[in-house]
């Protein structure tokens, strides 16, 4: 397979995953806005989580709900807006058209066509839930087409690696921006504000139901942190993503008969979510742990790009 093709598959999946994550973040923000008295700075934290706050501030300065939602969903100046990343995903899919099935291509193309229509104009608040659901549904269609029609070969592995690098990064960012509400602080424990924040974290990874199923009704910061970092059953946790990265890189290793530096880095990334538990992490510094994880995930991504010759 061409190095460029591997890169195209990797980025196609990353961008689709990113569109889905952006939709979840907007939904979590909207939920807080509706259930709490004005928390405009919640939107700032959401922009930070999506790593698109700087561009926003440059363009608009002041953070308002309406502008933040528009920036996250459809602004062409925001390279991470849903419309930008879906267009990028489609460009990459066109580039790797020979490596994906007709079903996958059509699912990506249809996602682009549908969202281009739905996001042609600023989304009125009353339509927001439906549009956000549409974004996730379209990404799910692509995932379904990939799962159901693609050979389990290197093309599939690179697409999966892109998905899990992006997802690990996204979950880690959510934790990075919100880590302070997960710390056992004497002042705020159990306050209403914290409860909202905790629920928002779960919502931004679509895990309210899964959390309840695992831990019952009480939302507690220690359990949330454990769930999002260490629980290997939770498909958006750091441990789950790191595990999948190790698996998919191992398939490539077996398929190609070649071991690269990225294999070692993935093992180490996985190790840091397996070697300790939530109490240790909170004690030694949750923030530092997340920062360390983000750095490792970034270096792993870069190493994969170079090991498999995505670029010249």
């Amino acid at each position: 397979m061409l190095g460029k093709t591997a890169g195209g598959l990797y980025w196609m999946s990353r961008y689709l995953e990113r569109s889905e994550n952006a939709s979840r973040l907007v939904e979590a923000g909207q939920r807080i806005a509706l259930t709490r008295s004005a928390h405009e700075d919640e939107w700032l934290s959401i922009l930070q989580t999506a790593a698109c706050d700087e561009g926003y501030i440059q363009k608009y300065g002041e953070v308002t709900r309406e502008l933040a939602v528009d920036w996250m969903l459809r602004d062409p100046d925001n390279p991470s807006s849903v419309m930008s990343v879906v267009s990028q995903a489609r460009q990459n899919a066109r580039m790797v058209r020979t490596a994906i099935t007709r079903e996958v291509w059509e699912a990506v193309n249809q996602a682009w066509m549908t969202l281009k229509g739905a996001l042609a104009r600023r989304v009125p608040e009353r339509d927001l839930p439906a549009v956000l659901a549409l974004v996730r549904q379209r990404a799910a269609f692509v995932r379904g087409a990939m799962h159901g029609t693609m050979l389990r070969n290197d093309a599939y592995d690179f697409a999966r690696i892109g998905t899990f690098i992006e997802r690990a990064d996204s979950t880690a960012r959510i934790l990075d921006v919100k880590y302070y509400v997960l710390l056992p602080s004497a002042l705020a424990v159990g306050s209403n504000l914290d409860n909202v924040q905790w629920e928002s974290i779960l919502r931004s990874v679509s895990a309210e139901g899964a959390y309840r199923m695992t831990y019952g009704q009480d939302v507690r910061p220690r359990e949330i942190a454990h769930f999002l970092i260490f629980d290997t059953r939770m498909p958006r946790s750091l441990a789950f993503c790191a595990g999948k990265l190790v698996d998919n890189l191992a398939y490539l290793e077996k398929d190609y008969g070649e071991t690269h530096r990225s294999h070692g880095l993935a093992g180490e990334l996985c190790g840091c979510t397996a070697g300790s538990n939530v109490d240790q992490v909170v004690e030694t510094g949750l923030h530092e742990f997340i920062q360390d994880f983000l750095g490792r995930a970034f270096r792993l991504g870069a190493q994969i790009e170079s090991d498999y010759r995505f670029h010249e």
């Binding site: 397979m1 061409l2 010759r309």
Partner: peptide, 28 residues
């Protein structure tokens, strides 16, 4: 390219190596 089952390449995927035109794959 898809129907023939061959690679679709651009100029920057190719270079001349040891007197042959070669494409950059994930394995060299």
């Amino acid at each position: 390219a898809d129907k023939m089952g061959v690679e679709l390449v651009e100029g920057h995927d190719l270079r001349v190596v040891d007197g042959r035109v070669c494409m950059r794959t994930t394995r060299g």
